[in-house]
Design a protein around this nucleic acid. Structure first.
Lengths: 123, 123
DNA sequence: GATATCTAGTTTCTATTAGTTACCACAGAA
DNA sequence: TTCTGTGGTAACTAATAGAAACTAGATATC
């Protein structure tokens, strides 16, 4: 009944870390639409650095959520696509995205209330 | 169609950050069962530092996901409970937890395959 | 009467991680 | 010959997570 806090033993912990990763889900959702190349992803996701993109792609591939396919052109092009496993994870993220869209207003309102309260107490 | 990368504008991004927070969801799921006090949470979640617990509780309260209730005993006790909003977020996390439990085996297998592949290529 | 314990935190410092910037090698076009 | 494109890596810095010690006030223990 007690949640298992030790990261190594807790599957949910590991998946939440992956989903909480700033770029991972974004990439997953992009690749759900269609396969993309490295620089294509980089241009689409304005603000990501090459290092982070490279790093996240590598870890997503390691987890079996995406597939890396190098094509022997000149210069080499590399295409990334989503796997079946990645597809199901993306699906599990959808309820969360829906929740976010429906409830962001309330969260922001709560934040404003809290901040106003704090300010008042400080005065 | 293109996902909005700029964090400030993207509700999903903000919620995913919250859910990806190492301790936040854990606390939310604990408080879904029953209200708890500060040190009670600290003892239940072995491994969390007082600083992190205090910090996460504060940000969860700020987001309107939990409620803080100080009781004038001696010494003062503080009880944290989940709000209606927090309850619905916890519900949206459930599919993800289910996915994790069902697919962790596959993810770990993919990781082993990937690591073996890397090792082989290095040799 | 000094010490320890409970409550719920805060402060300080360090280790880890996230992110930025510059660079690599190769080929084709201007 | 310098510029653009391919897909990255290496070195450095800023931000954050976490460990450990401290606060304060009342009660119980030695």
């Amino acid at each position: 009944m007690k949640p298992d806090v030790y990261a190594a033993n807790c599957p949910t912990r590991q998946i939440l870390d992956r989903v909480g990763d700033k770029w991972a889900v974004l990439i997953l959702l992009l690749l759900r639409v269609e396969p993309m190349r490295f620089n294509q992803l980089r241009r689409t996701i304005e603000g990501i650095s090459q290092k982070m993109l490279s790093q996240v792609l590598k870890s997503l591939e390691r987890d079996g959520l995406i597939r890396r396919h190098a094509i022997a052109t000149v210069p080499v092009t590399v295409e990334y696509s989503i796997t079946q496993l990645g597809l199901t994870l993306a699906g599990a993220v959808d309820p969360l995205r829906d929740w976010a869209e429906q409830n962001l207003k309330d969260v922001l309102a709560a934040q404003r209330r809290y901040d106003a309260q704090q300010k008042e107490e400080a005065a």
